[in-house]
Amino acid sequence: MEAVLARMRALDERLPAQDGVAVFNRVYLTVTQTLQRQVERGEFPGPRAARALTVRFAERYLAAVEADRAPACWRPLIQYRRHPGVRPLQYALAGINAHIGHDLALAVISTCRALDCEPGALEADFDRVGDTLVALEERIREDLMPGPDLLEIADPLTHLLGSWSLDRARSGAWAAARLLWTLRRSPELAQEFTESLDAGVGLVGRCLLTPTRLAVPA
């Protein structure tokens, strides 16, 4: 786990603070550090499986942001990362959407193959990771909330925040992982489903990054 944490810290040092990828990276670095402490304290039912899942999960994010061409689910965040009309909270949620909505299911499958087990064997650890993410999401929203104007129901950001749910996203990720495991002997169908999942999650990410404030002239 230290290897992926080191790569995230290197990204944090290299990227400008307001860069959209940097915003998500800081959030995810905190998440991964929290998961590492929980594994070390024995808070997961299967520490070995939890560690393997956490590492493979993180590696998918790092591969995406370091690639010449990222998967469709990550492209909105990468393309809009310096847009003056997008708020930091939107960057964080767009990254979480890509990572949970697409990467988590694929990380479950690669972990199952590495440990020679079925998804059911990882379900308790999957749920524990999800519970940690949900608990941290509220803090993330509070930390990155731009101000009391969000109490206005007509504020576009208020609408965006209410239209996406991490809890629903992780439920969808588990369903996608189970389906991909069922399709493992039909590689063409599995690839078709994975591409569809990637595109769908990318569309949601683009919506989450809808500019919600006017750019201030330099």
Rank of each mutant, 00 (worst) to 15 (best):
A17P: 06
A177V: 00
Y61D: 00
F193S: 15
L53P: 07
L5D: 03
Q79W: 07
T30H: 13
A173S: 06
A114Q: 14
V31L: 06
L179R: 08
L214K: 15
C117T: 09
P88Q: 01
G120N: 00
S171K: 11
L160I: 07
V204S: 03
L179V: 08
G200F: 15
T54H: 02
L189E: 12
V27M: 05
W181M: 15
G202W: 08
P119H: 15
D155F: 02
P47W: 15
L161I: 04
L209V: 06
A94P: 07
D103V: 05
Q79T: 14
R75W: 01
R75G: 10
L62A: 12
A72V: 01
L161P: 06
W174R: 00
D143R: 12
L157F: 07
P119D: 15
S186P: 10
R113D: 09
S163P: 10
A124V: 10
D125W: 00
E40Y: 05
A218P: 14
M145G: 11
G46P: 06
V201R: 02
N25P: 02
Q191T: 11
V216R: 14
P76Y: 01
R141D: 06
P146E: 12
A92K: 00
V39I: 11
D167S: 11
H83M: 13
G205S: 04
L89K: 02
P217I: 04
E13K: 11
D131N: 12
R213N: 11
G205Y: 05
I78F: 05
D19K: 05
E13L: 11
L157Q: 03
D103Q: 10
A64K: 09
G20I: 00
E137M: 02
L161K: 05
A64I: 06
Q38N: 08
T32S: 05
A63W: 14
L62D: 15
E123I: 12
L189Y: 08
C117D: 12
V27T: 01
H159K: 13
S110K: 01
T194W: 14
R113G: 07
E138K: 15
A50V: 03
Q79D: 12
T54G: 00
L93D: 05
Y80Q: 14
M8N: 13
Y91V: 01
A94H: 00
H83P: 14
E2H: 15
T32H: 04
G101V: 10
P146Q: 13
R26T: 03
T194L: 10
L133A: 09
R41D: 00
T158S: 13
S171I: 10
S186R: 09
R56I: 04
A169P: 02
L151D: 12
T54M: 01
Q79N: 07
L93P: 13
D131S: 11
P71M: 01
